[in-house]
Amino acid sequence: MSPLRLLRTLLIVAAALALGACRPQGPWQLNRIDGLMPDLSFAMTDDRGRPVSAEDYRGKPVLLFFGYTSCPDVCASTLARLAGAIGQVPGGPDAVTVLFVSVDPSRDSAERLRRYVGVFGPEFIGLRGSDDALDALVRRYRVTYAYGKPDADGQYDVIHSSGVFIFDGQGRARLLAGPNDWSAPIAADLKRLLEGARTPPAS
């Protein structure tokens, strides 16, 4: 088995174990990760070349996904699912932010990221960073990625985790959407997060 194929297999196994360890509780439809993952925190550059941090996106739910613009299938289909879910949420694009973190920053310039995520809606924002910044972020959320062997034209694939981390408006990790979670359950849980944000605490 090639190293890339082995890594792909390990990623699938790890994702299955993670999803099995945090089954939905109560009316939630996605996998709950309350207390299992740290709050949203990073320092990167957005798709307009501006330095940004997690604090810039407080106040509304944030969906965090790692991918790259040359991805042949998974990235575009995942972002399309998220766009479909957000379209079912009251407030739509104004209510949620999606952060698409490039695991291929050498090819994904800010302009390229902006064109790519812009197809899915104004709530989609591309992020890129230095190797150190990217490595710190993937370690924080236990994400794995690896580069394949370049072909004759210098092109290569990147194997990466496919989960979507969902944070509430305070930046707390709440939910994990897997590759088999379609728009409807994602939308249902986003609505619950938004309703919770609007509900005043009990006196």
Rank of each mutant, 00 (worst) to 15 (best):
M1P: 14
S2P: 14
S2R: 07
L4I: 13
V13H: 06
A15G: 08
A18W: 00
Q25C: 00
Q25P: 00
Q25G: 00
Q25Y: 00
L30T: 09
R32A: 12
R32E: 15
I33Y: 12
G35K: 07
M37A: 14
P38A: 09
F42I: 11
A43Q: 12
D47F: 05
R50H: 12
P51N: 06
P51Y: 09
P51H: 09
V52W: 01
V52S: 01
E55I: 13
Y57P: 10
Y57W: 15
R58G: 14
G59V: 01
V62W: 03
F65E: 04
F66V: 02
Y68T: 06
S70C: 02
C71R: 03
V74M: 09
A80W: 07
R81T: 13
L82T: 00
L82E: 04
G84R: 05
G84I: 00
I86Q: 08
G87K: 02
Q88W: 00
Q88A: 13
Q88R: 15
G91W: 01
D94Q: 15
A95Y: 07
T97S: 11
S102D: 12
S102Q: 06
R107S: 11
D108Y: 02
S109V: 08
A110D: 15
L113G: 00
L113S: 02
L113M: 02
R114T: 02
Y116D: 04
G118P: 06
V119E: 05
G121S: 10
E123Y: 05
G129E: 11
D132V: 10
A133C: 05
L134Y: 11
D135W: 13
A136M: 07
A136F: 05
L137P: 06
R140K: 14
Y141A: 04
R142P: 04
V143C: 06
Y145E: 02
A146P: 06
Y147F: 11
Y147C: 03
Y147P: 00
K149G: 02
P150Y: 05
A152S: 14
D153S: 12
G154A: 03
Y156H: 11
D157C: 03
F165K: 01
D168N: 14
R172G: 06
A177L: 10
G178T: 02
N180I: 03
N180M: 09
N180S: 13
D181Y: 05
W182P: 00
P185F: 10
P185E: 11
P185K: 05
I186E: 02
D189Q: 13
D189H: 12
L190P: 00
K191V: 08
A197E: 14
A197H: 09
P200G: 05
S203A: 13
